[in-house]
Nucleic acid binder design. Structure first.
Lengths: 344, 344
DNA sequence: TTCGATGCGCAAACCGGTTTGAACAGTGAG
DNA sequence: CTCACTGTTCAAACCGGTTTGCGCATCGAA
């Protein structure tokens, strides 16, 4: 039926030139006479030829693909809207550069390592490292495997950290500080925090920022519950906090999903939001904006982070190792979920 | 520093055999003496050799990668948790088979076509088609491009449809029918529907199912609002439905996000849920289970669909063209968001 | 007319695997 | 002792591109 895909040889023959010339006509790495170039393009067009990317990859040892391994529990992947937004942001940049994105979702550490090893076998040119953990071994792993990498973090890297992996970071601490300021400004003194899993650097950073901000206002940051970013944990943590006489008048959650689940729980147990309980989220999801009341959150531009990470990785692949890049645009979005505390 | 990656030639030399023997030892396509095989494996191990996937791809014209193009507006990707769940499901199957997943997120049709064309240039072996639309041209496109494909739909393919693309489908209609049954059984007679964009076959199928179910109960399906799966549209559609004297006593939403936003809107405009308004979602997201009241929804096992789609595609790649596959497991999950209607 | 410079394209090597026809050693049968 | 046969390995071709040394033609200057 439809014959095999045409090769560069077919195009060369049709245009009456050699394979090399066809290649050069496309890459422009050496001048080709205008007239010849036209013949080549015409031939390619009529044969509907496109270079085979496998052949190209083999010849150039560049795959035009970058890899992303997501290592999270299914419940979180299924809930948190960060990933799809992040990926969409990456894609926009990658597509423009003609690059592809290879995705792997893994659930245990062995599978994670295996994924990077497969990547290193010439499937991708570089990788983006998400969800950096305390003592994360991936930077070493990827270096060992010879992969170019970019790492996402939630705070500026320490000066003395021997960072050889390019870093793209946001400054979550400032945003958390702002949230606390807002609450304190509204009159709250009893503020709790539901964090993410503290083994993640970003979750720990937000928790630390909460502690600092509270301390700064002379308040005791003594109600901190560790959640795990799932709706279930948000609900449970909230239950633990509000089902008692000395419940807080406000809760700062480490992500929107936990905040929404918490808000919903509080409401159904008789509390009015925001009158009896103010809540804030983090990572502003589309849903949060359209709830009633809207959820006060921190818009961190997941898509922008994806775009910047992709751009930085492309630069690194081009040999342009750059200093840590700050992704700006972290902004507190105030909505109806915050109000002055009622007396109770 | 770290020398270039070892090649099969290095392994051959180290083991004192030829390249071909190394290849055979690994593929097993021809017998290799046990003793030789051991030497080869030992050499490969000590050199830390792994076959270059580009070279393999070129030689075998198989990339061990499948492609997935997601063509949706950013707001939807950012909200709907279907995609990450679906992808996680695919991955589980693909990883097991040593295959990779290439992902592309596009926003317009040209980019979509371009993505498939890049795929066809030897980047992937096959593709999964999501979100089939009325008169979708992708089946033709991928056939023309010589890509193996699997298509996901929400109803059994019509007998007379000349389906040459393998289909994996769910039976959404039955589930929608059950939802309506539940509501009618609880005493509701004024039930509205907020659909998805009707150009999508699955959204239209759910709408049709709603119409059929209502008609079956002798009710007039005259309050249907077309949404677009976003939280914003869920809120707006709900506003249009409930901010009037003859508001419905129940609303069937085509996905959870719209339902959650709608529920939230209804509550904040003074309606009690479920006492004054019962609501149901679709595609059961983790969040829905942990809201209070929990959202009655239809669990369609996005991850299972992903897994089945991946498995079917792998089979198709293996030349095993099979009849349409039904993904079972669509089940109505009843939670607190349904109650008998109150008088008003 | 001769000579170097310049522009252009060809042919061949190469990337790192897979595949296959043929060679070779060892074995048992005739 | 020869021959057919089996089991094992080798060498070379091939996949479809990219890269580069070299030759050829053309042209202006000496």
């Amino acid at each position: 039926m439809h014959g095999a895909r045409p090769t560069i040889g077919d195009v060369a023959r049709a245009a009456g030139v050699s394979k090399g010339t066809v290649s050069l006509a496309y890459s422009g790495k050496r001048p080709v006479a205008e007239e010849t170039r036209r013949r080549v393009f015409a031939a390619a067009e009529s044969l509907r030829w496109t270079a085979s990317s496998s052949a190209q990859a083999l010849a150039t040892s560049r795959t035009s693909t970058i890899g992303l391994v997501i290592a999270r529990r299914p419940e979180i992947i299924a809930t948190d809207t960060f990933f799809p937004r992040f990926i969409a942001g990456c894609e926009a940049v990658l597509a423009e550069a003609g690059m592809g994105l290879m995705l792997n979702v893994v659930t245990d550490e062995d599978a994670e390592t295996a994924a990077y090893e497969r990547y290193a076998a010439g499937r991708v040119d570089g990788v983006i490292l998400l969800d950096v953990k305390q003592g994360d071994r991936r930077p070493d792993l990827v270096r060992e495997l010879g992969l170019t990498a970019v790492m996402l973090t939630a705070e500026a890297p320490h000066e003395d950290d021997p960072v050889d992996t390019p870093v793209v970071y946001t400054e979550d601490a400032a945003a958390v500080g702002e949230l606390v300021d807002l609450l304190v400004g509204a009159g709250h003194t009893s503020i709790a925090h539901v964090s993410g899993p503290l083994r993640y650097v970003h979750a720990a950073a937000r928790r630390d920022a909460f502690v600092d901000a509270m301390t700064h206002h002379g308040l005791r940051p003594d109600r901190i519950v560790e959640g795990d970013f799932t709706a279930a944990s948000g609900r449970d943590a909230t239950a633990a906090l509000v089902d008692r006489a000395d419940r807080p008048s406000a809760i700062v959650y480490a992500n929107d999903v936990m905040a929404i689940a918490g808000l919903s729980y509080a409401r159904s147990s008789g509390l009015r939001v925001p009158e009896d309980l103010s809540v804030t989220g983090f990572d502003d999801s589309e849903l949060s904006a359209h709830l009633s009341p809207g959820l006060t959150s921190v818009s961190t531009g997941a898509d922008v982070r994806g775009a910047v990470a992709a751009r930085t990785l492309l630069a690194a692949l081009g040999g342009d190792a750059r200093r840590p890049v700050l992704v700006d645009g972290t902004v507190v979005v105030r909505r109806g979920s915050i109000a002055p505390p009622s007396r109770h």
